[in-house]
Design a protein around this nucleic acid. Structure first.
Lengths: 255, 255
DNA sequence: TAGTGGTCTAGACCACCCT
DNA sequence: GGGTGGTCTAGACCACTAA
């Protein structure tokens, strides 16, 4: 029997649906426009709502759509480029348009995975600074910055023991310390409940976790774990400006 | 009427399930071990299979699990750190343990998003080199490297017009050109069908898309779009070695 | 051929936002 | 209160893998 294969080898419905929707987004919708609701879209395409949702989830993951409970599904703007490598050493975070804003600061025992990197005892409390990063009026990242007491020896105990004021104090001392360099890694994660709240997303939302180790005087001065909204952010590295290419356009290349 | 709120504010089942499973993975399972199948797990936890799958999907996204159709669900090893910033300029890709392997090379018209970055006419064909990156015996990334003819003027037309040999020729010429620097960006995407095949994943699998612009002589010499497996990879930047911290451990910190 | 994960359905109810 | 997306169910069938 001949094995002449049909052209299409059983492409899943949701995958095909995603392609169709993607093209429709390009041609028929403007950024910010509201799509028909899920029940109507499902009916229009003749699929179950769950199947349609699978396609929408993919498009949201790729930054093409934005869905908000109680509101609707809208066409997302292109991802914003967020610089990661440079200008991070300015601990003050003041003045710049894109800045980290200190939210809180506590002193507590860090997870063992953190203490081992920081070269401190597992049960030794460290300063934990909470910051958020705001770009174009939107919170794009939430960070936990772990700072051993030894890195900020001159931090006055008289200052506010917690809160934003304390956070600024720790950052100021860290700034005075100076830095020799930094190590960074990026991986995919899902937002914890507290991060999700800051980022205005549901828990479990996909995030890019940027882990940075700040080096000073031959040791690790601080460790930062920053979670960026994966749906709206494109992390940029290097000296030059923005790279204006979107993965989405990539997908339409000839194969 | 009193509004005394219950302690637990309606945590979704799949979220709680994910937590329970995550803890079980830490205590009761070894890396590589096979979990009970989905139908049994669902029954054991008293939920529908779809609900269980939602939890498993999250855990897979976080790199804790690996699922393969027809085989089963296994406990994933920790993510491998993959260096991105350095050693990339060695176009030869030979000798190193972690190396890019040329797979193919064609000459075709690139998408407009690519040509605009490369400063070439929209209808001008460019060299498109296909490479894969193999680490520890596993393919962790698939790349498309776009090279304008003007960047490799001395490429002999006599050489193989396509295939791996051609790819090596283009890379060799690019190496001779030298580089002034590079711009990079990282964002979340989903694997196209061809990338998915190289990465041994299903289409739509989450990937980290690394877009690199190589600069030479004041212009853009080449553009690389590399898709890394988001489930198994942690991208590392900077000079020093590995950062041994996992986001997963982060999640258990006191809040 | 048996067993796995992947896809799909047609419902239901809930949490949330807006008016 | 009415409409939205988010969660959940209990099934069914399919594609793939390995024995």
């Amino acid at each position: 029997m001949g094995t002449t294969q049909l052209e299409s080898v059983q492409e899943p419905k949701y995958w095909h649906l995603k392609t169709v929707l993607s093209e429709a987004l390009d041609s028929d919708f403007a950024v910010g426009e509201i799509l028909p609701n899920e029940r109507e879209l499902a009916a229009r395409f003749g699929v179950a709502r769950a199947t349609l949702r699978q396609a929408l989830e993919q498009l949201e993951l790729e930054g093409r759509l934005q869905r908000r409970r109680g509101v609707g599904t809208t066409v997302a703007p292109p991802r914003v480029g967020v610089a990661v490598s440079t200008a991070q050493r300015d601990w003050s975070g003041g003045g710049a348009v894109e800045a980290w804003q200190p939210v809180d600061c506590t002193t507590a025992v860090a997870p063992s995975s953190v203490t081992s990197v920081l070269d401190v005892e597992a049960d030794e409390p460290v300063h934990i600074v909470r910051r958020i990063r705001v770009t174009h009026g939107q919170t794009v990242a939430a960070e936990l910055l772990y700072v051993p007491s030894s890195s900020v020896p001159e931090l006055s105990a008289i200052e506010a023991p917690s809160g934003p004021a304390r956070a600024r104090g720790v950052l100021r001392e860290l700034h005075r310390l100076g830095l020799d360099g930094q190590d960074r890694s990026v991986e995919l994660g899902s937002a914890r409940a507290d991060d999700a709240k800051e980022l205005d997303r549901l828990p479990g939302a996909p995030v890019l976790v940027v882990t940075t180790r700040y080096l000073a005087a031959g040791g690790t001065a601080a460790l930062s774990v920053a979670t960026y909204r994966a749906d709206t952010c494109r992390l940029t590295f290097g000296d030059s400006g923005d790279l204006e290419i979107s993965h989405h356009d990539q997908e339409r290349r000839a194969s």
